[in-house]
């Protein structure tokens, strides 16, 4: 049967377009209308500042210390938090992988993720406050003389990012580690490699692509921290993160153009860091995760 004899319907069907394919249309339209369009709109809007030329918002952002320091302040929180979570997650995941019934542990660890940053912030305010249980315990054992200040400063935000970020990083790492064929490690053990050597020579190289993606996801989550930076940090000082700058521009100054510019810069930093992380493993052109555009 030659192509000319086919009806339009049949020809479309041959290319995979028929009634069933149309089922994807509502979903695509939805994402186009509420995700892609706002992103492009925001990008264009950021070039239409209230005052100044096309780049007015960006010039303003990089000339006012109150605004441009938000990027470094956020990085100073997000990079160590991501690193701590990663460094804690790998050994824990290596250990939990050997458990016969890890389900109870993973269930407990999924709780802080589910509760979210707002609830964790309220919990930390009660628990870590000057009269909270932690400070009472430390003083009871005479480890400190006066209450340690762990909230309303940098450490409050850092701790909250570890409490919600560590379980996230751990569960993601665990799912990558359990995906590694155990017989590879057994082969290494049979040839006389000890645990440490098996980890560095066998597990880690196999895990690296997964770790790069885990790092990227943990970093973007930490980089856009908002509720804990406000509730647990010093939102006027050292924890004035970039999300606060974007929120203030949009909802306190009603300058949506500036807010969009800050959001675009936020996305740009994320893309740069994620691209760097993924390029470390030569992954840049492979996974769909490399296209972290906002």
């Amino acid at each position: 049967m030659s192509a000319a004899n086919l009806t339009l319907r049949q020809r479309l069907h041959e290319r995979g377009l028929d009634g069933v394919t149309l089922l994807v249309v509502p979903g695509v339209l939805f994402v186009l209308a509420l995700f892609i369009y706002p992103s492009i709109y925001g990008l264009l809007l950021s070039f239409e500042p209230k005052e100044g030329g096309v780049f007015g918002n960006y010039i303003k952002f990089f000339s006012e210390p109150f605004l441009y320091t938000t990027i470094t302040k956020t990085l100073v929180i997000a990079i160590p938090a991501t690193a701590i979570n990663m460094i804690l997650s790998v050994p824990v995941a290596m250990r939990v992988r050997l458990m016969k019934h890890p389900r109870l542990l993973t269930t407990i660890l999924v709780i802080p993720i589910t509760l979210g940053t707002v609830m964790v912030a309220e919990g930390m305010l009660t628990y870590l406050g000057p009269r909270g249980w932690l400070n009472r315990t430390l003083m009871f054992f005479a480890l400190v003389d006066e209450p340690v200040r762990l909230i309303h400063n940098y450490w409050g935000v850092m701790l909250s990012l570890v409490i919600t970020g560590f379980p996230f990083t751990f569960l993601l790492t665990l799912s990558y580690i359990t995906g590694i064929d155990p017989s590879l490690e057994q082969a290494g053990a049979m040839l006389g490699a000890r645990a440490r050597m098996r980890f560095w020579r066998i597990i880690l190289p196999l895990l690296a692509p997964g770790l790069a993606i885990t790092l990227a996801l943990s970093f973007v989550a930490a980089f856009t921290v908002y509720p804990s930076a406000v509730l647990l940090g010093a939102p006027a000082g050292p924890t004035r993160v970039i999300s606060i700058a974007a929120y203030t521009a949009a909802f306190e100054e009603y300058d949506y153009s500036m807010a969009s510019a800050v959001a675009m810069l936020m996305a740009a930093v994320q893309v740069i860091v994620v691209a760097f992380l993924l390029s470390l493993r030569g992954l840049f052109f492979h996974g769909p995760a490399s296209s972290g555009k906002g």
Partner: peptide, 13 residues
């Protein structure tokens, strides 16, 4: 993959 805070601002606009 994109965190909500990043696309939320243009979306809210």
């Amino acid at each position: 993959l994109v965190p909500p805070m990043t696309y939320g601002i243009p979306l809210a606009t």
